[in-house]
């Protein structure tokens, strides 16, 4: 009986390590869909009020791209909605989360914007990735921590599909 328990424990331990490594590789590849330095076309889902509503909190700064708040929720500095290096969280239509800067400065995003929910297609240039970021979707909401890796980059050349 004891030897059976030991055999099971060892087998389970080996499986756990192997499966854990495989799982990590699988999900890292998923985030790697946004490869560092690459540019990918993304379709973002938005509403007009997202310019003011979307925010992130993180201490990670890559090539000047930064969130509006530090990880402890303190403001990172005076907020200007036209800051080209201010990151905001967006979801693609395939439900991928990314942090992007510069969206609202692209010519396509000049008012008037469509009412209700709309999508916009942009080039997303990945400059970094962060493991530690919290996001919110309304200026008065609390930040919610995000699990997993989130790419950081710039958005440009946006068009309405």
């Amino acid at each position: 009986m004891t030897s059976f328990v030991w055999l099971f424990a060892i087998g389970f331990g080996v499986w756990l390590v192997t499966a854990g490594k495989h799982y990590r590789e699988q999900y890292t590849q998923y985030v790697d869909g946004f490869r560092l330095g690459s540019t990918r076309m993304v379709e973002l889902t938005l509403v007009a009020s997202d310019q003011q509503g979307l925010g992130c909190a993180s201490d990670t700064v890559v090539e000047g791209l930064h969130c509006s708040h530090h990880a402890d929720s303190r403001e990172a500095g005076p907020l200007t909605p036209v800051d080209p290096q201010l990151l905001q969280p967006y979801y693609t239509t395939s439900k991928e989360l990314l942090l992007g800067a510069g969206l609202w400065l692209t010519p396509a995003m000049k008012p008037p914007l469509p009412g209700g929910r709309f999508t916009v297609v942009c080039n997303y240039h990945v400059v970094g990735v962060t493991k530690a970021v919290a996001i919110r979707f309304a200026p008065t909401s609390a930040f919610g921590q995000v699990g997993g890796l989130v790419p950081m980059g710039t958005l440009s050349d946006c068009v309405f599909p």
Partner: peptide, 14 residues
């Protein structure tokens, strides 16, 4: 679930 996913992928525990 989000925490478990973080442990599995190596991200900080939210």
């Amino acid at each position: 679930v989000n925490s478990s996913q973080s442990f599995l992928t190596g991200a900080p525990d939210p």
